[in-house]
Design a protein around this nucleic acid. Structure first.
Lengths: 123, 123
DNA sequence: ACGTCGTTTCGCCAATTAACGAAATGTAGA
DNA sequence: TCTACATTTCGTTAATTGGCGAAACGACGT
């Protein structure tokens, strides 16, 4: 029950579902997810931590950056099944589509993206 | 997204998961679910209404009694998929097993069960 | 060693939600 | 009609959760 409950709780938030939709495209760094979701960094960090504890995503650190990706086959069946279900539903979702478009734009800039996000931008 | 989110929210509560585990056995009346879960009638009624709005269960009225059963094939794919997933997980769950045992006992009494639940019991 | 910067943790506030009992609803039987 | 009773709705309270900014953390470059 614990696992199932944790999985469902993790998936019962719109921001977290959107994040999963983004990760479906490719592994992403926290700041890229932040940019698309338009939430405070600390908020998104918390969301990713919830998804991690539910074993829906995994992360790795590379220098100062934290990269997140969808869970692999070693995750509990509850997580894998629910993930598959959620991604299938997101595939047909309007908001998720818009997010994927926004992600494409973010991935193009990278340099300016970082700049705009920080207040010290001079562009 | 709305449907997916509603489904996941409905499934992210232990009492509601337990109720689904009971309904897997057979169609049940509200008071039987109340008896097994050990919660106030009004609380369980609210839970069942949440499950209904997420299209995870359906209900019918027969006289003063409200009967609930798991959703049929006409429910949204999100609901059906999540339901299948949750039930599979509950199959292996300790608490769910205990609930099924408790349900068997409740189904046997029926008369006395109703009696005990109401404060006017004289047994 | 020091400052910078991406991330995480912490503390707070607002919104949501589960729980209860009381009151309202609706149906069956006297 | 009046009463009894299963269920639902309402109002309140306590706990949980999402959101933010500030502070702490940790790694890189100077």
């Amino acid at each position: 029950m614990r696992t199932l409950l944790a999985t469902m709780k993790a998936l019962s938030d719109e921001s977290r579902l959107r994040a999963l939709g983004l990760l479906r495209e490719r592994e992403l760094c926290l700041c890229q997810i932040v940019e698309v979701l338009g939430l405070a960094t600390s908020t998104v960090s918390k969301h990713m931590s919830v998804l991690q504890q539910a074993r829906l995503v995994e992360s790795r650190k590379e220098g100062r950056w934290a990269y997140f990706r969808l869970a692999d086959d070693e995750a509990p069946t509850e997580a894998l099944g629910a993930l598959e279900l959620a991604l299938a539903s997101l595939d047909r979702d309007k908001q998720a589509k818009a997010d994927r478009r926004a992600l494409k734009a973010v991935l193009k800039m990278s340099a300016e993206e970082l700049c705009r996000k920080q207040a010290n931008c001079k562009c």
